[in-house]
Design a protein around this nucleic acid. Structure first.
Length: 108
DNA sequence: CGTTTGACGGATA
DNA sequence: ATATCCGCCAAAC
C-alpha cells in the first residue's frame, strides 16, 4: 500500500473513507471468530468508524469485533469476554492480529 | 455556510 | 514501554 506521501491529492486513491452505512455493512460482514479495525472499516479516516460505533445503539452491530490496529480494544473486560467467547486469540491485553484480523478485501 | 467531533493510525522521540 | 503530534473526513452542531 502506500504511496506517495507528499503527492497531496494524488494520494487519495487509496484512502477511501467510508460513510456510516458502508461502515455498518462491512462490520456486519466480519465473521464470528474474527476482528477488524477502525482503519479497515474506513481507510484514511478511521475516526469515522469510531464515530459510528460510539453512537451505535446496542443492538445489531458486532461492535466487539472492532479493535485498534495494534490489537488493543477500548471496551475493557466486557469486550474481552465477548472476544474470548468467540475464540478470538488474545495474548496479554491484545488480540493476535496476525490470526484474527479479517482480510479487509473480504468485507468490502 | 464554518467548526468541532470521533471507540483512529502511524510516525517520531 | 509511554507520550506527543499531526493528518484524515463524514457527520453533527
Amino acid at each position: 500500500m502506500l504511496l506517495y506521501p507528499s503527492a497531496g491529492a494524488a494520494t487519495k486513491i487509496i484512502f477511501v473513507a467510508a460513510s456510516r452505512e458502508i461502515i455498518c455493512d462491512r462490520l456486519r460482514r466480519v465473521p464470528e471468530g474474527f476482528v477488524t479495525t477502525y482503519g479497515d472499516l474506513s481507510p484514511g479516516a478511521p475516526r469515522q468508524a469510531g464515530r459510528v460505533l460510539a453512537h451505535a445503539t446496542d443492538d445489531e452491530l458486532p461492535w466487539w469485533r472492532v479493535v485498534h490496529s495494534d490489537g488493543t480494544w477500548v471496551k475493557g473486560a466486557r469486550q474481552r469476554r465477548l472476544l474470548e467467547a468467540e475464540g478470538i486469540p488474545i495474548r496479554g491485553e491484545r488480540v493476535v492480529m496476525r490470526e484474527a484480523r479479517i482480510d479487509p478485501e473480504a468485507i468490502l
